[in-house]
Design a protein around this nucleic acid. Structure first.
Length: 817
DNA sequence: AGCACGCCGACT
DNA sequence: GTCGGCGTGCTC
């Protein structure tokens, strides 16, 4: 007798284990790991994934509940993905169910459904008029909708009566949240001539039938023989329409339901293959292609300056991978996944490419995922979660803009797509390519330890040098009597660019008008009533308001300070709106465009804004980091950074790295095509190494300095950091939970190679009226501390849970504030 | 996470 | 005397 050990889909830590079910005799041999099944847990129906199947003898197995249904014929998850789910759980301290939900698109989750079936204990017959429905339900359980569709609207009453008489009962049943899309096709059975003759014959007697036959004949003539039929929707018909049913009954046509994809098949498109490669590109392609073919695990850091043509390298290495029979996966930051980017991949590989991103509907994601699972698409391009795509014979993963923090998922399971990619390539014996103009400290550390190699691409494809960067000391400006947002150099750069018909970009890393309001009389700042953070000042057409960027709370702007009553509230900390306003005031004739989360919240607005600016609809674009990434505006000749200091001020050990990356990226925006580029960076800390290194395009200098600091203060990559949070509306409970975690941890882990920092309030100590306390743990290898950390976590989490609070564990955390 | 069972207040 | 509050405990 077979027993299936399954993981149920319910994401509760208490259910994070295997449950055993009996495999009914008729399904023996049909049940395999990775397959979805329906089971009852307690008395409710739920979906589960088969983890393992074993042959067990003896009475114990007979007492198990049986599997209720097998959902898929072929397992939805491959053996590799099942192993990945297990690894995810261990690596990030998440429940197996949460990991499953991250790997499988939401469309495949269970949508519970009520069905009606005859009661097995009912003896005898219901009243005569209820017999047809009762007989139908005896053949198979039906949902309410099915009952109405098959037995007419009066069946609703019949159903109620059968229920009241105790003849039938409700039964749990289910289906996928979003199923495959089916379309009905009418397929002709006879020859083209018969079709035409039948049409003529029916033209008077049955004109609607005749029209269908004519349409079929026309499609046949056009598409050639034998035709696959015509989708009924193309004729505005449904299979239940009378003429269709009549033709089917006469045997003139056959009706077929076929699964179709919701994603239109990519047109072949134009392939923009460059006429020539730089010697660096050619060398990179040569080296990587050789590794893709050899089926051994290897990691490569593709260090290419902005404009060095990394994408073309990716494309040609993927070609080599495909030629060797492998599949490939390209990860890009969500923001860089623009139609232009996708077009390059589709242009080269056509319908072999599947694109996975957050803009797709659940159904579209399902269809793309299944196309990959069936092997119809062998290349996947997508954002973070695409790292789980079920690519067959996966041999190559490319992580573009590898240094981007968006590869870390900030909810459970808090995985890092770069680590997942590494795991998959290690397991499959494939090649991992980490591409960046500013490789992360982590990636370079791997190189130092001999676990990866660097492939340099220091030259731009257009042969031009990187644009010169001027660092402006804003203290000097102040001394020279310039109190405006714009230094003389920045002003000059703007005027030169716009004056010569070019475009300019101004970058400021904060949205809204000003970071906060401060009372110049008493020093009070206006804070959010629900969070420990000051509210941001926003200005729009309908005046000004205050907004909390943590919880969304809004408030009106008081005329006087609520603390001291003085009319002395002043805005501090420049935001995009303020820059936009200053531009409009000083250059009223210029066309100014602003791009940040506030202007691009609407779906598609982001892409629209990008095309408008690219089409020359504005002279100056003001925006947050979203304008820095992956965009290529050929007419931009000037880029200004209004303040580089906001990025440096963040209390995060990676602040310098982020600043360096962003400045490098922003500077790369200027002068990508014909126009000569120029960049001005404004700062109050012109001597800072991150700013200096970015200004001189000197990655090596930045890396040396940053590496030394990380080593001296024991920050990643010289250790790994895991953060525990306790979150509760009562400060006392949040604090004591964090302290308890700290104690438990110290007790279990000892001192060797582990540093446990004391429990403290988080950087923002209260969000949405809930207090947050944190414990930071530093160690060298997760496997050495995992047991201890997880045991401590489970103890505290369980208590916190019953006290109405939450605990979060962020393994290999990015942020620690 | 649900959905049971189980033990104490305001109602037909 | 019953309906129902949500506190604890289990789910193969």
């Amino acid at each position: 007798m077979q027993v299936a050990s399954v993981v149920v889909e319910i994401p509760a830590r208490a259910l994070d284990r295997r449950f055993d079910y009996r495999v009914p005799l008729e399904w023996e041999g049909r049940v395999a790991p990775g397959q979805r099944v329906y089971v009852t847990l307690g008395r409710r129906l739920c979906q589960a994934y088969v983890w393992s199947v074993a042959d067990v003898d003896g009475p114990a197995a007979r007492d198990l509940k049986p599997l209720l249904a097998v959902v898929d014929d072929t397992p939805l998850l491959t053996a590799e993905l099942m192993d990945l789910v297990a690894w995810l759980g261990e690596r990030y301290g998440a429940s197996t169910q949460a990991c499953l939900q991250a790997v499988v698109p939401a469309a495949f989750r269970l949508q519970p459904q009520r069905k009606y079936r005859v009661r097995p204990d009912f003896r005898g017959l219901p009243p005569d008029d209820l017999q047809p429905l009762w007989q139908a339900l005896r053949r198979e359980p039906l949902s309410y909708r099915q009952v109405l569709a098959r037995h007419g609207p009066d069946a609703a009453i019949a159903l109620e009566r059968l229920l009241a008489l105790g003849c039938i009962e409700e039964a749990a049943a289910g289906r996928d949240q979003v199923g495959a899309r089916q379309i009905w096709f009418a397929v002709p059975t006879g020859s083209l001539e018969t079709m035409r003759a039948a049409a003529t014959e029916r033209s008077r007697r049955a004109p609607r039938q005749a029209r269908i036959l004519e349409a079929l004949a026309a499609a046949w003539a056009e598409a050639g023989c034998p035709p696959g039929g015509v989708p009924l929707t193309a004729l505005s018909l449904r299979p239940s329409d009378e003429p269709v049913r009549a033709l089917a009954a006469q045997g003139m046509v056959r009706l077929e339901a076929r699964e179709v994809s919701r994603v239109p098949e990519a047109a072949a498109g134009r392939d923009e293959r460059p006429a020539a490669l730089t010697r660096w590109q050619a060398e990179a392609i040569r080296r990587l292609s050789a590794r893709v073919v050899d089926e051994r695990f290897s990691v490569h850091v593709l260090h290419g300056v902005t404009g060095s043509g990394k994408t073309e390298v990716y494309l040609q290495v993927m070609e080599a991978c495909l030629a060797a029979g492998g599949g490939a996966l390209v990860l890009v930051p969500e923001i860089a996944l623009t139609p232009q980017m996708v077009q390059r991949f589709v242009g080269r590989f056509g319908p072999q490419v599947a694109v996975l991103h957050s803009g797709l509907s659940q159904g579209e994601k399902r269809d793309e995922w299944m196309r990959v699972r069936r092997g119809a698409a062998r290349i996947v391009v997508g954002a973070r979660s695409a790292v789980f795509a079920p690519v067959e014979n996966l041999r190559l993963i490319i992580v573009d803009e590898e240094h981007e923090p968006s590869y870390k998922q900030e909810e459970s399971p808090r995985y890092d797509a770069r680590e997942v990619a590494r795991w998959r390539m290690e397991r499959c014996g494939g090649t991992l390519v980490l591409g960046s103009a500013t490789p992360s400290l982590q990636a370079m550390h791997e190189v130092e330890r001999g676990r990866a190699d660097v492939i340099p691409m220091p030259q731009r494809t257009n042969g031009k040098p990187l644009p010169p960067v001027t660092v402006v000391d804003m203290r000097e400006e102040l001394r020279a009597g310039n109190r405006s947002l714009f230094s003389r150099a920045l002003r000059q750069g703007l005027e030169e660019a716009v004056g010569s018909g070019r475009q300019a970009i101004l970058f400021i890393n904060r949205r809204g008008y000003a970071a906060f309001l401060l009372c110049r009389s008493c020093g009070e700042t206006l804070d959010c009533p629900h969070c420990d953070i000051s509210m941001t000042l926003h200005r729009g057409r309908d005046g000004a308001w205050l907004q909390c960027h943590y919880c969304g709370e809004t408030a009106s702007v008081p005329a006087v300070c609520p603390q001291c009553g003085e009319p002395a509230l002043r805005p501090y900390g420049v935001g995009t709106q303020q820059v936009e306003q200053a531009l409009r005031e000083q250059w009223p004739t210029w066309r100014v465009m602003r791009m940040d989360v506030d202007t691009t919240r609407r779906k598609g607005a982001h892409q629209q804004a990008i095309s408008r600016f690219a089409d020359g609809d504005a002279d100056v674009l003001v925006g947050t980091q979203m304008i820095a990434k992956g965009l290529d505006f050929p007419n931009v000749s000037f880029v200004g950074v209004v303040s580089a200091d906001t990025m440096l001020a963040v209390p995060d050990y990676r602040a310098a790295e982020r600043t360096f990356n962003l400045l490098t990226q922003v500077a790369g925006r200027a002068g990508r095509a014909e126009a000569e580029g120029k960049t001005v960076v404004q700062t109050y800390r012109p001597e800072h190494y991150a700013i200096q290194a970015a200004a001189h395009h000197d990655y090596a200098a930045f890396y040396r300095r940053e590496r030394a600091l990380r080593e001296a203060f024991s920050y990643p990559p010289f250790c790994e950091i895991t953060v525990f949070w306790a979150i509760h509306p009562e400060e006392r409970l949040a604090r004591s939970a964090a302290q308890r975690f700290e104690r438990e941890l110290r007790r279990r882990l000892g001192e060797d190679g582990v540093t446990v920092l004391p429990a403290v309030a988080a950087g923002v100590g209260r969000v949405e009226d809930k207090y947050r306390y944190q414990v930071v743990v530093k160690y060298s290898h997760w496997v050495h501390v995992r047991e201890g950390v997880m045991a401590a976590f489970r103890t505290v989490d369980e208590k916190m849970h019953s006290a109405g609070g939450t605990c979060v564990l962020d393994v290999n955390a990015g942020r620690i504030g």
